[in-house]
Design a protein around this nucleic acid. Structure first.
Lengths: 144, 144
DNA sequence: AGCTGTCGTAACAATAATAGTTACATCGCT
DNA sequence: AGCGATGTAACTATTATTGTTACGACAGCT
């Protein structure tokens, strides 16, 4: 599957900002986060832009600008992040509509869609069980 | 997410073969299945090739060649199909390794990996609950 | 007012995966 | 031998993600 790293990078960014603020800083810049995540600042700004729309972070502009958490890490779950940065569904149906004249072609899409809906709901439940505070805690618990 | 339709098309193919055999035919051709799924026969042959490696279908060559089920649809689950046609993980880690000198960069990958492992295991459990017989039954239950 | 550092965003290139297509060797039955 | 299908390589097309450059907008400072 063409898995992407958006959820990983977004979680990285949130954990980074959270830790940075815990150390007494007001805001974090996209450049700092990008350096830690080994990517481009624009990638971070785009992701954090999505997270801001979801109400997870805030940004300041001008000199001394940067990003800060809009809520406590404890109140954010991976589901919040997932919904903010992953638009599409997990599994796709057919690219072109299957033959409606065939019994299987006719019934397969509603049948699979119902299955996929159940599976995505389960995925959501799992994602909702992990808070970003948990993530940061796990990160800090990794031995050097 | 760049969702793909492999699982959908593979399930479609299996349901089609199952129904076709139920109607008394010995083997199904990739061309027939491709017509029902609105795709190219080669795409079907490639997917069925993966399913054959997993022991779900068999193929005959020569005249009167085609594909048949290697086992009863009841004994196949969507997990079997998923494992046969989806190589990669659901979520990717960073493309480039994060900064190991940063606390977050150092700990984020093992932390996220552990979370992803749990989530994938949950996904597997859900997929394993649905047999291909269920799928065909659902397909046939869709009203015209 | 002007300077500075950062966001916000557009535009484009690079990379990668999936899917579609053509072509053809190979196989096995009649 | 002829036929109809698989098996597979090679290539193209499409699409999504990621990376990069560029630059306007903004806000605080001197």
């Amino acid at each position: 599957m063409s898995a992407n790293s958006r959820l990983t990078i977004a979680a990285h960014a949130l954990a980074w900002i959270g830790l940075y603020q815990r150390q007494g800083h007001e805001v974090a810049t996209s450049e700092q986060i990008a350096a830690s995540a080994s990517t481009n600042p624009v990638v971070i700004r785009r992701l954090l832009g999505d997270l801001r729309q979801a109400g997870l972070v805030e940004s300041r502009r001008g000199v001394g600008a940067g990003w800060s958490l809009a809520r406590d890490l404890e109140s954010m779950t991976l589901l919040d992040v997932y919904e903010a940065v992953e638009p599409g569904p997990l599994f796709a149906l057919h690219r072109a509509a299957p033959d409606p004249g065939c019994v299987v072609g006719h019934g397969i899409q509603p049948a699979m869609q119902r299955i996929y809906d159940v599976i995505e709901e389960t995925l959501r439940r799992e994602l909702a069980r992990v808070t970003l505070k948990d993530v940061l805690q796990d990160v800090l618990a990794v031995p050097r």
